[in-house]
Design a protein around this nucleic acid. Structure first.
Lengths: 346, 346
DNA sequence: CTGAAAGCGCTTACAG
DNA sequence: CTGAAAGCGCTTACAG
């Protein structure tokens, strides 16, 4: 069927050669153009031809080569999706949302992990460019605005968790500060005054904003800010564990702790548990993100919800719009406090 | 620079045209072939040419079009990775392992979610074929062996969690049954006799094997199998919650529960908690998988550990071997019981 | 060492 | 309605 002679540009024998458009055309006794048109429904084709072509396609279970198609069309129907780690429960939900939305439009997602550092993030972006993705979604990266702007010259970008007013770009900022005040108002409303805060890593804008919200709420309530009540964590369970342990062992009096995110809260839970303290009887705990697992923690965790799933869906929606040259009209998902049973009146 | 006249095969004006090999060649005053050779280090090229070409590449930050390259080369340097859900904490770790290993060899991963059903899984597989991935990794799918074997005719496949002795295929079975007996031996050794089992969905080979291990251990210990003590879950927290609640409300006497996986155990925890029962004082609980979060559950969960991360790495290693025509020599990762504080002597 | 040419598998403007 | 041809952006066997 295929010319067995080696030709220029035709490299060594590929293990198992697939069947091509031309093979189908030959078998159906038509031209490749016609097969292409039938597959894509581009033009009306007579029923008789259609039938024999479809038979040939079915017989070989022929599937057009996406990359070849992309090359001819000038677009790949692929979107690059950068998150910090594919196994982070926080991003996972967002990726899920993206995947779903993209799939609905026949786009594929190319997921890559930036591992919370600039080098890896930049490597991912270059990979995206290599693959000529039609667009890129960045989940709160740590790449400088200027760098992102430059990439946006080559390919439209949607960023979440930051505000980036550049061409070929759309931003879906996260309402960190507002969310944090929501959590604090709840705690304060419950009568708490000595509220500890387990922070995230300093280099993260989200971390800073959530801390700012913590302080703002304190101030509004006329409660003095006590720096000894804020300890840095690492966004993970481990950091929450050590930070809370530290707080406990330093014997700082506190009746509630607000954690920069849910994973941190899980760590705090364990620290409290180890010290024989009960949530919420001895101390109230609030998290941020409302991960799916938070409704299964013991006790179920009160948390600030910002649906990452929805964030992902909107990011996908936005990049699709950008790719088609439309200007997205999208809001970041709302934040709201989900009150469960990890908090109680003092 | 580019011919502005519309030509056949040259579709409408793509928004922002990238610079191509030919552009670089023109600018450096050499042929495209030479640029290609320099980029790929295929042949020795004189230093002077190399210098000017590299200058042109740097100037435009030129990156070769991966798909075009793939088309010419007959391989895409992309691996399709099928999991059941990109946001499942179980698969997440595995995906992470895959991503890492693949990246080291310059391969990209195309992640897709099968959503625990045959239709979606099949759709994913077809997408992989469309994209002409060089190989596929399937994390314990529910596709029939025959179907997988057929796909393997088109593209090498590595499957985890099942044994599939077919051509162009490599299996990394999970030691489900062994793991389950480990968990049961532990519980039985602690004096438990009335041990409930929260199963997975029936269509899953892993689920069946774990159930088999449960029964085998019972039998070896001379404990009669009581079908009323096994309830089906759904691999998720929710299933664990409802199954355990059901068990509790039906008033089945049991002192321990073995869960088909950790997520199910989290659900069981919540059910027990709601009924005012304490783990491990009132009932002992054992999970399977040892998710990272299991060391932070309250109390920390005793679980059967099979490093999914390592599984992912080995799957990647195996597919890379298969792609290169080598026969992988790999064992599935070992299983072991991690004893924490969710179990106690009766 | 280097270039012109053909080919990878598609799509579509241009002619029938 | 349908086909032959050119082009998408690369690579490499074949000649210099």
């Amino acid at each position: 069927m295929k010319n067995p002679r080696r030709q220029p540009g035709k490299p060594g024998p590929r293990s198992r050669q697939g069947v091509t458009l031309r093979d189908i055309a030959r078998e159906a006794g038509v031209s490749a153009s016609t097969v292409s048109r039938i597959i894509n429904g581009t033009v009306k084709v007579s029923t008789t031809l259609t039938a024999s072509v479809e038979a040939a396609i079915a017989k070989h279970d022929f599937r057009p080569h996406a990359a070849a198609r992309g090359l001819a069309l000038g677009r790949t129907f692929t979107i690059g999706v950068l998150s910090q780690a594919i196994d982070s429960p926080f991003y996972a939900e967002g990726l899920r949302g993206v995947e779903r939305r993209l799939l609905a439009d026949g786009y594929a997602a190319l997921f890559m992990s930036g591992n919370w550092n600039v080098t890896d993030e930049e490597r991912c972006m270059r990979k995206f460019i290599d693959h000529r993705v039609d667009g890129i979604i960045m989940f709160s990266g740590c790449l400088a605005d200027a760098v992102v702007t430059e990439f946006a010259e080559r390919c439209p970008i949607v960023v979440t968790g930051r505000e980036l007013p550049a061409a070929h770009t759309f931003s879906l900022p996260i309402k960190d500060r507002l969310g944090a005040t929501l959590a604090m108002h709840h705690l304060i409303g419950l009568g708490h005054r000595r509220i500890a805060f387990i922070a995230g890593s300093d280099n993260h804008p989200d971390a800073l904003e959530r801390l700012a919200g913590y302080r703002q709420a304190l101030q509004e309530a006329g409660i003095a800010f006590d720096p000894r009540l804020v300890v840095r964590g690492d966004w993970q369970e481990k950091g929450g564990l050590t930070a809370t342990t530290q707080l406990l062992e330093a014997d700082r009096a506190f009746t509630a702790v607000f954690c920069v995110n849910d994973q941190t809260a899980y760590g705090a839970y364990l620290a409290l548990f180890r010290h024989g303290l009960k949530v919420p009887d001895d101390v109230s705990v609030v998290g941020f993100d409302d991960l799916p697992s938070s409704s299964y923690s013991l006790p179920p965790l009160t948390s600030v919800r910002q649906s990452v799933r929805v964030l992902g869906e909107r990011a996908a929606e936005a990049i699709l719009a950008l790719v088609c040259g439309r200007r997205p009209q999208l809001e970041p998902p709302p934040v709201e406090l989900v009150v469960r049973t990890s908090t109680r009146r003092l």
